[in-house]
Computed example of a mutant assay.
Amino acid sequence: MTTIDFTTFVEQLASVSGETILPFFRTSLGIDDKGEHGHFDPVTAADRAAEQAMRSLIKRSFPEHGIIGEEFGNERADAEYVWVLDPIDGTKSFISGMPVWGTLVALTRFGEPVFGMMHQPFMQEMFSGDGGAARYRGPGGRRNLRVRPCASLADAILFTTSPLLMNETDRATFMSVEKSVKLSRYGGDCYAYCMLAAGHIDLVIETELKPYDILPLIPIITGAGGIVTSWDGGPAANGGRVIAAGDKRVHEAAMKRLSV
């Protein structure tokens, strides 16, 4: 599969998922809770319909490829090429009528992400990357994405979806970083990582991520010149505790505090 075929097909996935999701947004939705132990984890008909639409298109176009999806599990997960799907990353924002959510798609080869996309159909924005470059397409046109330099934590803007999603130990560790930055903001889900790739923020720190939450974002961040790892400096592809930074100096400084 050539790069041009790949890019065209990902845009088709974005189109079919967006057309499926938008009729549900800011409507009266039935919401199911798939969370456990008192943790609210909503899922809607929009999540399920969008993943089904993307799965159908993948199976028709590349029947030999595998699929890993948030809502419908794994098919041929040991294939050379595997598509990783999160139909609505930020479902809590989605059901609240807030536009900070997106459809995440990754393509992995032998388990490594080789392409990632975040698509926000309501705002008509798409962020994509292949690890070597990252791109934006939106109402303002098209451009390459690039992280911005940031010399220290004292100069950094930090995002996390919510410290309440962290356990007490991780929350305390996170707060040791938060106290050192110029500005800390909550919310954003996948959007925060894309804003990092676009050079608007400097640091994202999260916990409890699943592979489909982060795999599509890794090629975007690294393609824009950023770095994304686990809290202990290892690969972030398996999710869990993740740190993303636009500047290696900020990444190193935050890592020192996270590893304490």
Rank of each mutant, 00 (worst) to 15 (best):
H65N: 14
E51G: 08
I221F: 00
W83Q: 14
T2I: 06
P99E: 08
L85E: 02
F127P: 11
W101D: 00
M175K: 13
P216N: 13
Y81G: 00
C194V: 05
I201Q: 03
R171K: 15
E112A: 11
E71R: 05
H39G: 01
P99S: 15
V10N: 01
I220V: 15
A172C: 06
R109A: 05
V181K: 08
E168H: 10
R148Y: 09
A198L: 02
R146P: 00
N74A: 12
D89Q: 07
P219C: 09
A49M: 11
W101C: 08
D170Y: 05
L158R: 04
A245K: 09
G138W: 06
V105G: 06
R109V: 12
P216C: 14
D86Q: 13
G129T: 02
Y186W: 04
E51M: 10
Q124P: 01
G233Q: 00
N167K: 03
I88S: 12
V250F: 07
S28L: 08
L209N: 01
T103S: 15
I201H: 07
I157T: 11
S93E: 14
L165V: 09
L145G: 09
E178F: 05
W83N: 12
G141P: 14
M166L: 12
S61W: 07
D78L: 01
A77S: 12
M118G: 13
I214G: 05
G38L: 07
